[in-house]
Design a binder for these strands. Structure first.
Length: 467
RNA sequence: UCCUCGGUAGCUCAGUCGGUAGAGCAAUUGACUGUUAAUCAAUGGGUCACUGGUUCGAGUCCAGUCCGAGGAGCCA
């Protein structure tokens, strides 16, 4: 009785030559030889490469089935692992029998023909695009990165916190929110003044999908010291760019007894750990990206592993930009937020590697960021990556209640809406810090696949929620 | 949402000055071959995004609509 293996196991020589094996997968290509056999490139997603199956014309179903195999057909192969006499692979499978599980209805209109397709085209066939080299490789790297992130935090003594998806707070402040409701849209309950009566809604008040787990993570941080979230996040902004999704995944660590420098070090350590893991575990997929997508993607990661991230104060960044021998479309002045072109100049031209910008003016940052002693800046940091821009945004949190209240008022927020968040500052408050890492932006940066819609399985963007 | 560019065969694209719709790949058939993005030959394949307009005549010019991409803003 032969055992079923993955193609990765066979190609990585975990199975000795002459072993009898069963392989299951999908046909990539078929080439017929009049010497009395066909070559089938079989793929099962376990690694980048397909394996070559040699199907002799003595198979019972050779004429009526094997010769009709086209890209996308699913088969089960029973055969022997043999050294390959041909170029291009060390081993191949000499088939004893091949069972066809599913043919492709109409090969001419099968969307994934064995040729080049644009990423835009593949996006419109999101349920089948995983069968291509590019998207398959992206998803293996994505999985590798996700596992690496959990492993990194686990090794560092962090606890993974599952913060809620549904939130009653519309004050998270990070963007437009999707409403969650069970009210009948055709027949909304009204109060006497004509406003919608959310008391009759499922939760008895207005609810939304989360735009950030940070506030909840802070609560757990102030009991468990080192925590992180890793989950879906939703923003209903009408953003149409290669860097934005309405549904995306975000990693948000939160550390107690920590300041901004601890936060920056954590961000750098995490990214470095992830890059190392991908280079070690997905060398096959990365080699493909380097060949077909972005020739610098491997050397870029290798260089980062050898050098520290550049640290730069916002104030110094403004000086650098003002002294730059370059015309910017938007003005550079202390107190103004940096535009994409500015961030790009700093990361790509001035420094040429990731930059951690710190200590921004308080007026352009969120209320929860800790006020510095100068009274003008807050302990915020952004990690800017060449080619993609902001990949991480974080800060030391304001742990002093009076100052937090004052900052909320300045930001036109009502402290009464944040009672539980304020409680954290009333009962054993400690300095703490955290950041948000956009998972899709990380995958995009690592692979060189420049649109985040191509690095998430089923992208949600304005007007797009098919599949 | 704003700006720019685009939509022609299953896919990637060309299409000149407004005058009979083209190529490569894919598919089908055949030849050849331990092949590997195989090679060679033949064949089939079109609502030129949609609607309207100008014109003897529109893939081509004009208007509107829909869809896509890139950039910007928002941010991760």
């Amino acid at each position: 009785m032969s055992k079923t293996y993955t193609i990765a196991e066979v190609l990585n020589q975990k199975v000795p030559v002459d072993s009898e094996v069963v392989l299951k997968g999908w046909v990539r290509t078929r080439r017929d030889s009049k010497a009395g056999f066909s070559f089938i490139a079989l793929h099962d997603g376990s690694c980048f490469s397909p394996i070559q199956v040699v199907a002799p014309n003595t198979l019972a179903n050779y004429e009526n089935e094997i010769l009709k195999l086209t890209a996308g057909c699913s088969i089960v192969v029973h055969g022997k692992v043999v050294a390959s006499p041909g170029q291009g692979q060390s081993v191949e499978i000499q088939a004893n029998s091949i069972e066809v599980l599913g043919f492709v209805d109409d090969p001419e209109t099968y969307p994934i023909s064995p040729k080049h397709h644009t990423l835009e085209y593949l996006r419109e066939h999101a349920h089948l695009r995983i069968r291509t080299n590019t998207i398959g490789a992206v998803m293996r790297v994505r999985s590798c990165l996700g596992q690496a992130i959990h492993r990194f935090f686990h090794e560092q003594g962090f606890y993974w916190i599952h913060t809620p998806i549904i939130t009653t707070s519309d004050c998270e402040g990070a963007g437009e929110m999707f409403r969650v409701s069970t009210l009948d849209l055709q027949n909304l309950p009204r109060k006497e003044n004509g406003q919608i009566n959310f008391a009759e809604d499922f939760f008895g008040k207005e609810t939304f999908l989360t735009v950030s787990g940070q506030l909840n993570a802070e609560s757990y941080c102030l009991a468990m010291s080192k925590v992180y979230t890793f989950g879906p996040t939703f923003r209903s902004e009408n953003s149409n760019t290669s860097r934005h999704l309405a549904e995306f995944w975000m990693i948000e660590p939160e550390i107690a007894f920590a300041n901004l420098l601890d936060d920056a070090k954590l961000a750098e350590d995490l990214l470095r750990y992830c890059f190392k893991a991908v280079l070690e575990e997905r060398a096959d997929d990365m080699a493909f990206f380097a060949q077909r997508v972005d020739k610098d993607c491997i050397t870029r990661l290798e260089n980062i592993l050898q050098h520290n991230f550049e640290h730069m104060d916002y104030t110094d960044a403004i000086k650098h930009l003002q002294n730059a021998n370059k015309k910017f479309d938007y003005p550079v002045e202390w107190g103004l937020d940096l535009q994409s072109e500015h961030e790009r100049y700093l990361a790509e031209e001035l420094v040429g590697k990731p930059v951690i910008l710190m200590n921004y003016p308080k007026d352009i940052k969120a209320f929860y960021m800790r006020l510095n002693d100068d009274g003008k800046t807050v302990a915020a940091m952004d990690v800017l990556a060449p080619g993609i821009g902001e990949i991480i945004g974080g800060s030391q949190r304001e742990e002093r209640l009076e100052i937090l209240d004052q900052r909320m008022t300045e930001c036109h927020l009502n402290p009464a809406d944040y009672q539980w968040y304020r409680d954290l500052r009333r009962y054993g408050s400690v300095p703490h810090a955290g950041f948000g890492l956009g998972f899709e932006r990380l995958v995009s940066y690592v692979t060189g696949v420049s649109n985040v819609r191509d690095v998430i399985p089923f992208p949600r963007t304005p007007k797009h929620a098919q599949y």
